[in-house]
Amino acid sequence: MGTGTSSELVVVEDRIDQPDEVVLRRQVDGLSRALDVVGSTRPLTLVLLGPRPTDRTMRFLTRTCRVLCVSPQSGKGMTSVLHDSLSALLPLALPFPESTAQNPIKQVELEFIRTGEPDPWITEVLAAAEFGMDEVTATLKAWVEDGIHQEVRD
């Protein structure tokens, strides 16, 4: 299984038909050893369908792979139960930052308007920020140079 650049190896074990934990441990141990022999670095995930194994077996399994247990349930919500249980295997769908974040410059301007009279210095920096970092740098440099020239005149 894998999407895009994912190389995860997922093994599904149906414990409803084969509940023997000794067989399960041997199968997982054999697969893990085979992957070690060939030098695989792929992460291994074991999905267990059916009753949850004993704590001893879970400790053994989690030494070599990630284990997800999916218990059988009947009823209307079976699809959602399976989706919820297996969602840990799916890649996250993150929204683009532009779609969720508001314009931070506009937020600062609105905050200054809300709190009273905006400072002309801040207004000038915010206006420069609309054009990027270089413009802000040029604005700040101009302030410093103006301040130095002012002190020389005084």
Rank of each mutant, 00 (worst) to 15 (best):
S74H: 07
S74T: 12
G75C: 04
G75D: 05
K76C: 02
K76L: 15
K76Q: 13
K76V: 15
T79N: 08
T79Y: 09
V81G: 02
V81Q: 14
V81R: 14
V81N: 11
L82K: 02
L82V: 09
L82Q: 03
H83C: 02
D84Q: 11
S85A: 15
L86R: 01
L86I: 04
A88S: 12
L89W: 04
L89Q: 05
L89Y: 04
L90F: 09
P91W: 02
P91A: 08
L92E: 10
L92I: 07
A93H: 12
A93E: 14
F96A: 15
F96S: 15
F96H: 15
P97D: 10
P97A: 09
E98R: 14
S99L: 05
S99D: 14
S99P: 05
T100L: 14
T100K: 09
A101V: 05
A101K: 10
A101C: 08
Q102T: 14
Q102A: 13
N103Q: 07
N103T: 06
N103V: 03
I105F: 07
I105C: 05
I105R: 08
I105Q: 04
I105L: 15
K106W: 02
Q107N: 11
Q107S: 15
Q107W: 03
V108M: 09
V108G: 03
E109P: 01
L110Y: 11
L110N: 15
L110Q: 15
E111C: 11
F112A: 09
F112V: 05
F112D: 06
F112G: 02
I113D: 10
R114G: 05
R114Y: 06
R114P: 01
T115M: 07
T115S: 13
G116R: 03
P118W: 02
P118A: 03
P118V: 06
P118N: 03
P118D: 03
D119Q: 09
D119V: 06
P120T: 01
W121E: 13
W121L: 11
W121C: 01
T123M: 06
T123R: 09
E124L: 06
V125S: 04
V125G: 02
V125Q: 08
V125R: 03
A128W: 01
A128G: 02
A129I: 06
A129C: 08
E130Y: 12
F131W: 07
G132R: 00
M133E: 14
D134R: 05
D134C: 00
E135C: 06
V136F: 01
T137M: 04
T137N: 03
T137A: 10
T139I: 00
T139L: 07
L140N: 01
L140G: 01
L140M: 08
K141L: 08
K141T: 09
A142T: 08
A142L: 09
A142N: 06
W143D: 07
W143R: 14
V144Y: 04
V144E: 06
E145I: 06
E145Q: 13
E145F: 06
D146E: 11
D146S: 11
G147C: 00
G147Q: 00
G147K: 00
I148D: 10
